[in-house]
């Protein structure tokens, strides 16, 4: 039971670490955003796993089913997905502008150019 009961959460942890690692270690601005998305999706899995009841069904009321999964995490995650895509779209728009201003989307090259400006 121990292993089975926590299996889903472990998947979430591994994914979350992957995404988080991409965000903070990579210098490419687009890749960082992809990482951020993986990071967020992993959190969605955490929430949805919390709401699941074994033997339950989707929370749409019908005549036949008696046990439903918890609808609240679903609602919260719907909201979170929307927030996620909004953030991604805005981040990508910023990347486009950065590329126009600096001609690159690599963090260290941008950094080098900014250093020159400061001097």
């Amino acid at each position: 039971m121990q292993i089975l009961g926590l299996y889903n959460y472990w998947i979430f942890i591994v994914l979350m670490m992957c995404g988080f690692y991409v965000v903070i270690s990579r210098g490419n601005l687009v890749k960082k955003l992809v990482g951020l998305n993986i990071f967020q999706t992993s959190v969605f899995i955490l929430y949805i796993s919390m709401g699941k009841i074994i033997g339950g069904t989707a929370p749409i009321l019908t005549e036949t089913a008696t046990v439903y999964s918890n609808p609240v995490p679903h609602v919260l995650i719907l909201t979170a997905i929307v927030v996620g895509i909004a953030t991604t779209a805005l981040g990508l728009a910023l990347v486009v502008r950065i590329n126009e201003a600096y001609g690159t989307i690599e963090e260290d090259e941008i950094h080098a150019q900014s250093e020159d400006e400061a001097l």
């Binding site: 699941k52 989707a58 999964s69 679903h74 719907l78 997905i81 895509i85 779209a89 990508l92």
Partner: peptide, 26 residues
């Protein structure tokens, strides 16, 4: 995991719109 609404959204957003935006950026 029984979250059909969420699955629906994730499929249309993550696999659909987000990918299009990212390709547009590329």
């Amino acid at each position: 995991l029984d979250a059909v609404d969420v699955a629906f959204t994730e499929a249309s957003v993550g696999a659909g719109i987000a990918t299009v935006f990212m390709l547009g950026t590329l």
